[in-house]
Amino acid sequence: MLEIKNLHVKLEEEDKQILKGVTLSIGAGEVHAIMGPNGSGKSTLSYVLSGRDGYSVTDGSATLDGVDLLAMEPEVRAAQGLFLAFQYPVEIPGVGNMTFLRTALNAQRKTRGEPEISAGDFLKLVREKAKALKIDADMLKRPVNVGFSGGEKKRNEILQMAMLEPKMCILDETDSGLDVDAMKLVSEGVNALRSAGRSFLVITHYQRLLDHIKPDVVHIMAAGRIIKTGGPELALEVENNGYADLLAEVQ
């Protein structure tokens, strides 16, 4: 589904190389995790894939179902089924959460040539999905992420994922700032969305999220490269020994 080949990326402003040849292949229905120390380039990868400004791709490619992702505008990538759950969800004062969701959903449907969802159906759908994530009516009415706690913001990200039904989901440090209960709730939300046609890329610093969202493949990223790939046991190895051994091993 997602094919990343030899991806090289630098920061436009600082002329600093962040990704130095990342290669990754995620098949349909697979859950991959990327772990790595701070500054290894994990978040950069998620931003580049979703099309944020400020990065320039100097080499390599990324495709979603064979289509070049990097040439597309962010909204087109979203309509193609790419979804990024932000590490720091953005607050948008003045835009109601419901308006936001409906605008996004209908925009994607329109791009794909599907009819808009009716107000009634939308309301029903959003209530149903919100309930599972323990998102109350008040949270839906408030402006997007404004005044939300850390946990509320992350649950709101998962709600969007549930509503937009993407095929490729990237979760960027979704566990950061979550307590145990909130992590469980968010993970359940994610697990409920796992299906044969939907893939996940879970970016995390710690193994604990992977206790809840079980990955098929674990990659270790350092200094802009994937230095090791393995099964779920690799995450446990990191948990027990830290990154130092792995880094030393590679060097």
Partner: peptide, 23 residues
Amino acid sequence: GALFYLRSRGVPLRVAQSLLILA
């Protein structure tokens, strides 16, 4: 940041701009 967030959810640039202006 808000503009990118909206676009990453599939909202086209112009619609996202209008939405933010109205907000």
